[in-house]
Structure formats: structure tokens, C-alpha cells
Design a protein around this nucleic acid. Sequence first.
DNA 1: CCGAAACTATTTTTT
DNA 2: ATAGTTTCGG
Length: 673
Amino acid sequence: MRLNSGQQQAVEFVTGPCLVLAGAGSGKTRVITNKIAHLIRGCGYQARHIAAVTFTNKAAREMKERVGQTLGRKEARGLMISTFHTLGLEVIKREYAALGMKANFSLFDDTDQTALLKELTEGAIEDDKTLLQQLISTISNWKNDLKTPAQAAAGAQGERDRIFAHCYGLYDAHMKACNVLDFDDLILLPTLLLQRNEEVRERWQNKIRYLLVDEYQDTNTSQYELVKLLVGSRARFTVVGDDDQSIYSWRGARPQNLVLLSQDFPALRVIKLEQNYRSSGRILKAANILIANNPHVFEKRLFSELGYGAELKVLSANNEEHEAERVTGELIAHHFINKTHYKDYAILYRGNHQSRVFEKFLMQNRIPYKISGGTSFFSRPEIKDLLAYLRVLTNPDDDSAFLRVVNTPKREIGPATLQKLGEWATSRSKSLFTASFDMGLSQTLTGRGYEALTRFTHWLGEVQRLAEREPVAAVRDLIHGIDYESWLYETSPSPKAAEMRMKNVNQLFSWMTEMLEGSELDEPMTLTQVVTRFTLRDMMERGESDEELDQVQLMTLHASKGLEFPYVFMVGMEEGFLPHQSSIDEDNIDEERRLAYVGITRAQKELIFTLCKERRQYGELVRPEPSRFLLELPQDDLIWEQARKAVSPEERMLKGQANIASIRAMMAKAKEK
DNA sequence: CCGAAACTATTTTTT
DNA sequence: ATAGTTTCGG
């Protein structure tokens, strides 16, 4: 397919700053990939001087894939295509000396971060969950606004801010002492460094001679600052964005950055892409009408030349189970009648927890499905345990990791021993692991504790030495050395669960081995890098998990951004759910509407909404109203299908099964003919 | 120091 | 409702 004139312009304008306002489905990924090709083939740029930045790993992978298809592996070699965070990590990895850091830093994920702040504030802040959450996001906002603890304290308004700023200071000191970074640091530190250090700034401006940013409306202040520093006065860049798809303001995203751009770069060329190549006319009309309820920075009118298409359906269900049952039944029938692939369907929901019921019904009916985005794998204790071990191995100063690991599996190192070790280490400004090798320690510790502790740390020290030469062997020795498998069997509720967990461990191990040894496509990585990449969930694709598998796609609305599917189910269309309750409370409906907009514009051919009359929430029965967004849609294009008369849950369960079973029987009969 | 029982918070979205 | 956490008895 050829590029339309807007796309063509966007691709060919390479001499200055360029903003592409790309509506949903207007082919922005095509523009980016074609532009990269044009820069290399038409403008004499070398691949290694071009960087493209996205927000999610999934998006980065997809872009790599698409560029690889357009250019071929050879020409694409050396291109930097990554998330903002991975780019920041890359800068830090190369410039750690200028940052005054050690090379072997490790990375905190949000659980580690929460745990540390909880510990630091014990007593000072009441054990209030929401307050802790506020503290975390306040610190994150400070970091996103490039504020140091001192600056935060100076600008603090009121008692609460002053206390929070103090906690920020404690947190920051602890992070530095342990040689640990959090996610925000991956943007913050490079930005501060490039601001302050001209030599480093020039080096990176020379390295990245053309920068492309996808989903620009999701940038926060520090990310925009980093972009400005990287492009410098030459201002050779393209950013692509759509303010209607800004759904990350809770993470500090500033869609106003779209406006700032024309102030900061007066020469900015603005190009609008308004033709939608994805959705039927009716779906697009619904999306346009919905989003018209929001205020707009840039006016744009999306149009489609595809057919008008089928009506949008609204299925009403009695409860969650019934909802899943109806979706499953609808899906089976549709799949059968239209001879589609399962991967043509997506089930989109607001919160991850909603996937459970759908998973259950799909599984019962032998429908292949894939839940993507779910954080489950990395939050599993067995995975966190092992990553913590590896963090100690690569960064002996990582006290959090050491504490997690020191008595897992149980090796008789209790709180008393650790308390004393902690006091000893603190008074000597050492980390726990490092201090455990001190000779004098035997004075303060009891015999048993000392014995157990030193046996463990000396052994771990040996593994550490091995890891420097033979990382793969070291990881293997580690897993065997702690006899992790036995530990799993002891602690798991059932042998089956233990088996599952061990499978996860082996999965992790084989991914790591791949990354450590490298492949034709990827350089071997150090253990430090591998551990960091795992925390970022940024690892290379393993061969088998190709998206080509024929599976129904389940994901959150957030995770669906940038993707498209022929048939889309948007489930849980209820007040309090799609406009989420917390957004209603905070009077932030616009962002929820954009989220609905994103969901609707994922659909190519058909779109089905579902909602429940009643639903179990925290075990309580609630009767939610239909989402206001459904009422905002053009009713002439909607078909509301009422649920059957209420019946008892048991009866409905049986009937539901029978319904699905009868559809299956029908299919089987039809097949015989 | 360990296991069972009682208790409690969970559910917004992601790097 | 359910999973994870704390507490109490052995």
C-alpha cells in the first residue's frame, strides 16, 4: 500500500523538527518505519546514528519487527530501538563514571520501592496504605520534575510536603548507599547528566543524530527534557502522538508537551494524519462522537473510507460469570460462522483482575487464549527470590536483595543475627553482605548465628567469583547449591504447585542462558545487564512465543494501545468500572473517556460491549449502572441485547454450559456435512 | 522455630 | 471471594 500525502510528507521532511499528529489507525507505525528507511537509504544516515523510542517493551519489539521487515536485518543493524527506560539505562551504563556511580548497580522494581519506603517510614508515617501510596507518587513526581531531595524540601508547601521531602531524602540516601536505582532514575540521571556535562551531552548528540519518539503524548517532564537535550540545537527529530490517546497522566505524562514543542522549536513542522485505515465507518463514528465530549488541544477529524460496517452490540449480563459466558458463547458462534482465527478476537478490560473469569470460561471451552501484559510471572515469589540472589551476586551492596535472600531457603539466620549484622554494617558504612566478611563480627554475634551467616556468605562469595568468569555455570550452581527445588516442594501447598514453580525457575534460567550467551542477533550480556533487563521486563523474544499462535487475546485497555483486532469485546462497561470509581471521585473522567476511545478504535470490523447488572466486588454484591460512555455513543448504531430473565445462579450455570455445549454440537454436526 | 487459624486488604492503568 | 499476612498454640 502506498503512503498518502500526509504520510509521505511526514516521511520526507527530515531537515528539522517534526510533529506528526496521528489519529488512531492513521498509520503512524508505517510512517515511523518508512521514515527510518528513508533516513538510511535516502539521506545517508547510518543505522547506528538513529534512535527510536517508545514507551512499552511490546511497542519496541513490534517496531523492531516492522523495521526489520522493511529494511532487512543487515541494514537495520545498529539501530537503537528501545523504550525510554532502556535508552536511559544505556546512557547510565556507559556514563556511570561521570555520574559517580559503580558500574554494577541494580534496579528496584515498584515492589522493592514500596517495601523500602514502608520500612523507612515505619512509625513516622502512620501505617496508612493510601498515605504510603501518596508518598510514592509524590516522590515519583518530584523525580519526574527533576527535583532533588533538597529542592523538594525547599519548595515544600505545608507540613505534609515537608515530611514527604524528608522521606525522599532518606530514600535517596539509602538508594545511593546500596548502589540501586529505581525506574524514575533511569530517566532522571541521564537528564541531569546531560544538563550538567557538556562533553557528555555532545557525545550523545553526536551518537544520536536523528531521534524518533512514538506516543509522544505520554512523555513526562523529564522525558521531554531528555529529548531536548539529545536533539540539541540541530533539532533533527520526529515525534508522533495523539492527545486523544493520552492515558498515562497518572504516571506523570504531560500531553501539554505537544503544545510546548511548538514553543520550544519555532521551526516545528506539524503534520496531521486524519485518514483511518483500520476501522469501519461506524466504529470510527462512534469513537469520534465519544471523544467529542472531551476538550481538545488540536482539532482533527478522522475519517475512514472503509465500509460503514455492522452495528455495535451491547450485551447485558446478570453477573460476572454470565458476562464471561456470553462473551465465550458469542465468540464460539462467531468464530464458527465466519471461519475466523481465534487471534482475530480481543477481550479488553479495565483492570487485570477482570481476566480471571474469562480465562476460566475460555479454558473450560478449550479455546486457546493469551493473557498479555499480566505482571504475574515476575511477581511470583520464586522469580523474585532468584532475581534477588542474582542482584546480590552482581551488586554486593544491594541490602534489600540480601535480606530477601539470606534466609530463603531457611538456613537458621534469624532476625536477631541480622539485627546485629545491621548495626555492625551501619556503624562502618558497609553493606550487609560486605560486612558479613568482617573478622571482628564473631565478637558481636552468637556462635550459631555467626556460623550460619558466614557459611552462607562465604559460599555466596564463591559463586560470585565464579559468576565473573562463567555466569551461566554460576547461576546453575546457585540454583542447585541452595537446593531450591526441595525448598519449593516444602513450601508449596501441593506438589503440583511446586512443579509449576520449578518450571518457572527453569524458564527463567533458560531465558537467562540465552541472554548471557548471546545469539546471532544479540550480543552476549553481562549478568548485571541480564538482571537489570529482567527487572525492566525487557528481554528478548523467545522463539516459540510468536504472536502467530492462534489465540484469543486478553489484555487491559492500556495494554491494547497501538494494537488492532478485527473483533473486539470491551467488557465491564459499567459506572465505577470503565469510568473507574477512583477517576469519578477525582473528577478525572476525560482520561477514562480517552481509555474507552482507545478501546473502541482497536476494533477493525466488529465491536461488542458487555456489562453486568450485578457484580461481586470485595465479596459484596453491587448493582452498577451502565457506563455513561455507552450512553454517549450514537444510539442508532448500537443494538442493546437484554439478558434473559433472571434465574438462579446454579440454573444459569447449567444453562450456560448447555448453551455453549449446544453451539459446539451444532458446529460438529455442520462439520460432518 | 514451625504450622494452622484467624484476619486483612485487594482492584487502575506500567517502566 | 480469595490470597496473602499475622498471630497463636505446639
